[in-house]
């Protein structure tokens, strides 16, 4: 393991702790699990710091590690414990996010996004809140870029329909009609 890689990862972790916790919260919907995800990510990233590629963004790499831990290890634990997946109303707001409580618009946005399926809200979060490109999000989520685009489109359609009185419309439009 290169000392330099280890130092880059260690510094990156220190700078990204709050963002990693936030991503853990978005995925798990549970503040305690978000902390556990950060803990596991720190341990894993430091163990695997030799795998970090210098010149790439360490925050993206950390997001991919956290996502992998969630998907492969902790998500099943949460389901096994019978917690299911709760809404933003319960998790992101009433469980301590004081500033969110006082911001009606933010509260509405978070509640709407939290109502999306987990994979969609994770994608929306990474692309629109964290500013990852489609390609970076695909790497972090370990899915093809087309899947990222599909999830974003499905999320935007769902959110768009929340403000729409008309019935749901068909997904695809034949431009030649």
């Amino acid at each position: 393991m290169s000392d330099n890689d280890h130092e880059i990862v260690s510094t990156g972790l220190a700078e990204c702790l709050a963002r990693l916790w936030r991503y853990g919260l978005v995925l798990s919907g549970n503040r305690d699990m978000a902390e556990d995800l950060v803990q596991a990510t720190c341990v894993r990233a430091l163990e695997k710091s030799h795998q970090f590629q210098p010149g790439t963004r360490v925050d993206r790499w950390l997001f991919s590690i956290l996502n992998s831990i969630w998907k492969n290890e902790m998500r099943s634990q949460k389901i096994r414990l019978g917690e299911g997946f709760v809404d933003a109303e319960e998790v992101l707001i009433t469980d301590g996010a004081k500033e969110v409580e006082t911001n009606i618009l933010a509260r509405q946005v978070l509640t709407e996004v939290q109502s999306l399926p987990e994979v969609q809200r994770a994608t929306v979060f990474l692309v629109y809140a964290e500013g990852l490109s489609y390609k970076e999000a695909a790497e972090a989520l370990d899915v093809p870029m087309g899947t990222v685009m599909s999830r974003l489109a499905a999320a935007r359609a769902k959110l768009g329909q929340l403000n729409e009185d008309a019935p749901a419309r068909r997904k695809k439009v034949d431009r030649r009609k």
Partner: peptide
């Protein structure tokens, strides 16, 4: 419809930070 599906995502999530 897709345009209406946009939100101030970054602003909302920044509060969680």
């Amino acid at each position: 419809l897709m345009r209406r599906g946009n939100r101030s995502f970054a602003q909302a999530y920044d509060l969680l930070l």
